[in-house]
Design a protein around this nucleic acid. Structure first.
Length: 485
DNA sequence: TGAAATGTTGGGGCG
DNA sequence: ACGCCCCAACATTTC
């Protein structure tokens, strides 16, 4: 049989491999690199990750007597059919991916396979709860996270994670495979040096992160998760994105840590629960996208179609490069470029700056994030940006405009995070590191870092007023449209 | 998963 | 000793 692997690049708790092992026949694990199925393009940070993850999965499979077959083509259906003919298989197993284009690809795969008399078995996966079944009392889609998450708590608990299959017998000879390089992935070019230094893609790396998090950070997670200058978060997002670890394994590892130390304030305390809640937000992102697939491109709240966005190519470029003159924003954008990741607190501030200070459409920022983040995930990314823009479910009210200076003072009080990524500001005291333009000359004259730091591309007070009046303009437009006959 | 403006209160300096 | 004012510090409301 053919085990089609998509966003489940792991051996442990993998329902596809488990089903294949249980059926007791030879298994051909295959990954198909297909623009019809995948949301990211080649060349982005996440494709670097994907390449390494595939290599890691392949070597893990080899220890089980198998190997990963990699194919490339426009349509996964055509590639799977080819492979079935090649190995004489009449059965394909795979897991759902909750993204609009993958769901569309699923339909084409199912039709194509059944036309050829090949049976398909679709497994759950990628998420913890039954997204299609979760409804409110009147059968509607939950509109807020809290009501959604409450319903998750009353749903059937996630399935207990399964161990990796003991062996995965493969047919001999193994079908031909492309290499990761031939797929156009894992370009170990100069710009990926920071990624290599920061991450260990693959299942083993995922578990290392989880164990480190449970040991050192989860106890203080509730407070420390907001501190970009500390290692207060799990950094599991890219591992979860590619399914190198299952959300159920993470979920139960946190709960088990709680059982192991019931009197400890560690995982048992608010930290563990706060972290599970974050997994809930991930779940909610897929839920919203499943029920509102158009939100990838367009605002969930239709009135935001009338928002007066601006075209600001200079501001956009400054934002991308991390040269806006607002230290916290710039540190975040540079962390993103260097490491393929940005701390969540800083994502909110940086995204808010693009959308509210510069009035650039959230879609432009979302596209940049998808290209540069190793955890580039359409559902989570879209949810985050729409939340920031105020156009999404459970969104922040538009008038909540982050002040990048105050956010920096509150969450990076010593400026340690800022100076790590913006070395130009190294000489500044904590008092002025978040607003270097106000620093007295004697402090500003001794930069130990390299080069000059730019002045703010826009004044905060001005930008705030402009954003509020843009919002008022939107409401005016919507009101007059609604009133017209 | 804000921030700024505005309102209220209470301690203390000072005439 | 008394009243006045200033202004932190905190609370409320508004955007």
């Amino acid at each position: 049989m053919v085990a089609w692997l998509r966003h489940d690049l792991r051996l442990r708790d993998n329902p596809v491999l488990q089903a294949a092992a249980e059926e007791g026949r030879t298994v051909v694990p295959v990954f198909v690199w297909s623009p019809e199925d995948h949301a990211w393009a080649e060349g982005g940070a996440s494709s670097w990750w994907l390449g390494h993850s595939l290599k890691s999965l392949d070597s893990a499979l080899r220890k089980k007597g198998s190997a990963l077959v990699m194919r490339r083509g426009w349509s996964p259906a055509a590639e799977l059919l080819d492979l079935c003919r090649e190995v004489g298989s009449d059965r394909v197993v795979y897991a759902r991916v909750w993204e609009p284009r993958a769901i569309a690809a699923d339909g084409r795969v199912e039709r194509a396979l059944s036309r050829e008399g090949i049976s398909a078995r679709v497994m759950g996966g990628q998420v913890l709860f039954p997204l299609e079944e979760l409804r409110n009392k009147s059968g509607g889609v939950f509109k807020t996270f809290s009501s959604f998450f409450r319903a998750c708590g009353q749903a059937q608990p996630p399935a207990e994670p399964a161990a990796a299959p003991a062996s995965l017998p493969a047919p001999r000879p193994l079908p031909a495979t492309l290499t990761v390089e031939q797929l156009g992935l894992a370009p170990d070019l100069e710009w990926t040096a920071g990624l290599r230094a920061t991450w260990e893609p693959g299942e083993k790396g995922a578990w290392r992160r989880l164990e480190r998090f449970l040991e050192y950070a989860v106890a203080e997670y509730e407070v420390e998760r907001d501190r970009p200058d500390h290692e207060g978060t799990s950094r599991l997002s890219p591992h979860l994105r590619f399914g190198e670890i299952s959300p159920a394994d993470v979920w139960y590892a946190v709960l088990d840590a709680r059982q192991a130390a019931p009197d400890d304030e560690g995982a048992a305390g608010p930290g563990g629960l706060a972290f599970l809640r974050q997994l809930g937000w991930r779940e909610y992102s897929y839920y919203v996208l499943l029920h509102h697939p158009h939100t990838l491109e367009r605002p969930l709240r239709p009135e935001f179609e009338a928002f007066p966005w601006q075209d600001d190519p200079d501001g956009l470029e400054a934002w991308r490069l991390g040269c806006t003159g607002y230290p916290l924003v710039d540190a975040g954008m540079r962390q993103l470029r260097q490491t393929g990741w940005m701390h969540n607190r800083v994502r909110m501030v940086a995204a808010s700056f693009l959308v509210k200070h510069l009035l650039v459409p959230w879609q432009v920022g979302a596209e940049w994030f998808l290209d540069t983040l190793v955890d580039a995930d359409p559902a989570n990314n879209t949810q985050g940006w729409q939340w920031t823009a105020g156009s999404g479910t459970d969104a922040a009210p538009y008038f909540r405009i982050f002040n990048p200076v105050l956010q920096g003072q509150r969450f990076d009080p010593n400026g340690a995070y800022i100076t790590r990524y913006v070395p130009e500001l190294e000489g500044l005291s904590p008092r002025f590191v978040h607003r270097p333009w106000e620093a007295p000359a004697d402090e500003r004259m001794q930069p130990r870092g390299s080069g000059a730091y730019p002045a703010p591309v826009i004044d905060h007070i001005f930008a705030r007023e402009r954003a509020l009046s843009a919002f008022a303009e939107m409401k005016g437009r919507v009101g007059s449209t609604a009133a017209s006959p």
